[in-house]
Design a protein around this nucleic acid. Structure first.
Lengths: 109, 109
DNA sequence: CTATTATATTCTATTTTTCTAATATTATAA
DNA sequence: TTATAATATTAGAAAAATAGAATATAATAG
């Protein structure tokens, strides 16, 4: 599935929480329920969406579904979401007060 | 603005395209229009959303607004979106055929 | 001044996403 | 067998995101 579709999926609080948890190891649905404040069916829906996107997968142990993280891209994504960054990139040259400057591109006029 | 809100914003084809372009350098709106197949007002709307989220900013040159990328987080995000990854992480132990295995967590039953 | 260029804003219909509720499935325990 | 535990599916209402159209603003050229 395309990167952008995966981004869209990950950009959701419950799904991020699920993925963060799975990044630590295998979890079954009931154990996910314990720290997510959302309904069982909703969790199942999120898991289903993530699985169809190839982000996670599961194996079976009796009546448990043991979910785990599958996508290396998402693992790295989770990493940078947690990271700290400087508050801004070094910007282009422009007056720091008036925020006026010269456009570097070429234009008709 | 929270990382997750920023993720949501970035997870849109037009906005990714805008950000990719800005990651190469300053661009004004008309120049963005040239390679985006969407209306001027829609571009403005996307730019506005990105700016309010602190992802981009602009300086003024006459009647041009010169937009540039501001968020280090988003710059790194764009980087990993372009990168290649192995198709899957090494999964947990479970039978490769039946996909059955043992849940590593502790459970009541 | 007035026209034009560059860009932003507002309103709105449409589409998409999200969640809840109800129900289904499946494996095991009793 | 039947009950129950673990999980999935479906349908639909509500909320949010999206894009188009029309209009507004602001700077400059003429």
């Amino acid at each position: 599935m395309a990167r952008i579709e995966i981004l869209k999926l990950v950009a959701h609080p419950a799904r991020i929480a699920i993925l963060e948890e799975l990044s630590k190891g295998v979890k079954c649905v009931t154990d996910l329920q314990d720290f997510l404040e959302i309904s069982q069916s909703n969790i199942s829906q999120h898991l289903s969406a993530l699985r169809h996107a190839g982000v996670i997968d599961y194996f079976v142990d009796g009546r448990l579904r043991c979910y785990f993280l599958k996508s290396p891209f998402v693992l790295e994504l989770l990493g940078i979401i947690r990271k700290d960054y400087p508050s801004a990139l070094e910007g282009p040259e422009c007056c720091p007060v008036t925020k006026k400057g010269k456009y570097p591109g070429t234009r008709k006029n």
